[in-house]
Design a binder for these strands. Structure first.
Lengths: 153, 153
DNA sequence: ATGTCTGCAAAAAATTTGCAGTCCC
DNA sequence: GGGACTGCAAATTTTTTGCAGACAT
């Protein structure tokens, strides 16, 4: 697709490690691939799937091969990514707001004993059990979080 | 039940509007009914069911008949109430962490167009659809939020 | 040069901590 | 008086805003 090339006719700056597919990925989603955004995206999309804003800041700035960024930029960039649909913000718990690289419709299993998060396929929920719903409303999203503890047996 | 009376033999301070059932309610749950806590509890349990920390602060301090409290006290008291099980903290959305006076197991319907929240009965979810769950884990909670928009037709 | 956009310092908002003052006994 | 607990000022953490500089025409 190479949208940046097509428009400007010049190659974007090379990214650490030789990845410029991240650039293309951002461009394809209408996000100008600046150094800061590429640094953040690289860390988000190449490590774990569920990360908090300050874990991301930490990782980006600990990595000497990518630009350092300010906290404000991390927040603003993450919000931008959510707005452009390449990231999803998930409130797993009042204490744990995370960003999820899986933007498809899915649910989560949260292990309360060790904090692990696992994605699960959409579950069939019988919406007709819920009174007074289908007449007036369009369902726009269904958030489901199953909280489990390790079996002590 | 009047547990405060039974223990100390003296009547707790009269609450605005003549309610001292709030005192008893707190006492029954092992929470010493101080002026600040009673003020906060009065507002939480007598108005809407879903409130944010700063709405609660605002309401308590706007009401001339109840003690004024600091922001810190509102936070600490709400956390205490959650710990003692008379209140539930709900992450409806990354941007909306609310306190819910309904501590029974239930779910929520959130109207994205007007912000309204409605409680719904627990829905039957077929957990056997979820691979690798029942063997290793005890389900400790199931959070379900159905986000709807008003039908435009 | 000029209008648009970016990144971040500083501001604001949200939450937690630490400790002075109270309340029992 | 002394141990335990309460409420809040201050500290910390999280998030947002506003604007100086960069960038593309």
């Amino acid at each position: 697709m190479q949208s940046t090339d097509a428009k400007t006719g010049k190659q974007p700056a090379k990214i650490a490690g030789g990845f410029n597919c991240i650039n293309d990925f951002l461009s394809e989603h209408g996000i100008k691939p600046t150094r800061q955004r590429v640094a953040i995206a690289t860390h988000i999309f190449e490590t774990e799937q569920h990360l908090s804003a300050d874990t991301i800041l930490e990782r980006v700035n600990d990595d000497a091969t990518t630009t350092n960024v300010s906290k404000a930029t991390v927040y603003n960039t993450l919000k931008l990514f959510v707005r452009e649909g390449i990231l999803k913000e998930v409130a797993l718990d009042p204490q744990r707001i995370l960003f999820d690289t899986n933007t498809h419709h899915h649910h989560h299993v949260l292990n309360l004993d060790n904090g692990d998060i696992r994605d699960i396929q959409p579950v069939s929920i019988n919406l007709s059990e819920i009174e007074g719903l289908q007449q007036h409303h369009n369902i726009s999203d269904v958030d489901l979080i199953i909280k489990v503890r390790d079996n002590k047996d």
